[in-house]
Simulated assay, not measured.
Amino acid sequence: MLPRQPQKILVTFLMHLGDLLLTTPFLEVLRRAYPEAQIDYLVDKKLAGVVQENKHVSRVLEIDKKGQDKGVMALYRYAQRLSQENYDLVINLHPNERTSFLTANIKAKCKVGACHFLFRPFYNQVIKLKRQLHAADMYLQVLQQLGITQDLTNQGLQMPVSEAALAVSAQFYQQAGLKVQEKLIGLNIGSAVLTKRWAGERFAQVADSLNAQGYRVVFFGGTMDAELVQDAVSYMHTQPLIATGKFSLQELAAAMQRCSLIITNDSGPMHVAISQNVPIVAMYGPSSPKLYGPYTERALIVRAEPPCLDCAGGMRHKCEKMDCMRNLTVAQVLQAAQEMLRSEDKSEL
């Protein structure tokens, strides 16, 4: 049984960038349920910037899951340190082996949430994630299943940015020669999953077309996307701004605020853009928009016509055909971009 008014709560989640952003509505609702509690959030060290400015979190705890905290013994030692915090309630949001093992070894008054079957005996209450829901709603449903609250209303994905990040972003655009009156469109061409990537040559065509219409274009992405962006730019006839690999996560979010629109593959940075309330056009191939789509009304999803059904039984990480992305045309993306831009222009009147 859950403690009635826990004073110290630990939430654990060690998944990827987009997944972490999809838990931010959960944090908002949890804070509303326990306004006076200390709510700590344990996340992957490299993603701490996603929640470091989140007002619903008391402390962000970092774990270097691919570095010094990798391995069973390192996780066990980390759990022992967390045990010294004497948490009233630990909530684990994902049943992967790493966080299940970690939370199983934390001494706390009550441990609940999703859990790998091997570690269920160490939990006070285990819940099963409702994977038929959109991922953000799936994490929110954890609060209902635990009986914490039935009111799941929220403001969507949230990633507040610091003044320092805004200053870095402003300096980048100033040095790039971007004028105040110029409209900027961002492109995010990377994705951790190869089959989610739309061709760089087609991004180049989109960029050139938008530039011809008077828009400036900026490429975003991390250092791992540098070669993809370099390849795309090699096909262009106009000169874009290149922000790839130049920003921290906080700075990326700040830089995206300047955009009138972001055109993107299904990826973590897509969710960053959504957290900044920037309108997006998102290309979807093997993944399901119903489960992992834009958690916002300010989005248009573009898919190949006719749709490819090869991933109907689940997303493929490898595919020789990739018809779902190859049959998604430049004309479709430009049409969606124009539609979204017109819609945004009307809303500003």
Score class of each variant (00 low, 15 high):
4 R>V: 05
9 I>T: 05
11 V>P: 11
16 H>R: 13
18 G>R: 03
20 L>I: 14
25 P>G: 07
31 R>V: 06
36 E>F: 00
38 Q>T: 11
38 Q>Y: 02
47 L>F: 14
53 E>D: 09
57 V>T: 01
64 D>M: 10
65 K>Q: 07
72 V>F: 15
76 Y>V: 04
77 R>Q: 13
78 Y>F: 14
91 I>C: 05
92 N>S: 12
93 L>W: 04
101 F>E: 11
102 L>V: 02
102 L>Q: 08
104 A>N: 09
112 V>E: 02
115 C>Y: 06
116 H>R: 09
120 R>Y: 00
121 P>V: 07
132 Q>H: 15
133 L>P: 12
141 Q>M: 12
144 Q>T: 13
145 Q>L: 06
147 G>K: 10
148 I>H: 12
150 Q>V: 11
156 G>D: 11
157 L>H: 14
157 L>M: 10
158 Q>L: 14
170 A>M: 01
173 Y>H: 10
176 A>M: 08
177 G>I: 03
180 V>T: 15
183 K>A: 12
185 I>V: 15
187 L>A: 08
195 T>I: 07
200 G>F: 02
205 Q>M: 14
209 S>N: 06
209 S>C: 08
229 V>M: 08
231 D>P: 08
231 D>H: 15
232 A>T: 05
232 A>E: 06
241 L>A: 04
242 I>G: 02
248 S>F: 08
249 L>T: 02
252 L>F: 13
252 L>Q: 12
255 A>T: 03
259 C>W: 02
260 S>I: 01
264 T>C: 09
265 N>M: 08
268 G>A: 01
274 I>H: 03
275 S>R: 11
277 N>K: 14
280 I>K: 03
281 V>T: 06
282 A>Q: 09
287 S>A: 11
287 S>Y: 03
293 G>Y: 04
295 Y>W: 07
300 L>F: 01
302 V>P: 02
303 R>D: 00
305 E>R: 15
311 C>F: 02
318 K>M: 13
323 D>N: 13
324 C>G: 01
332 Q>P: 12
340 M>C: 06
346 K>M: 14
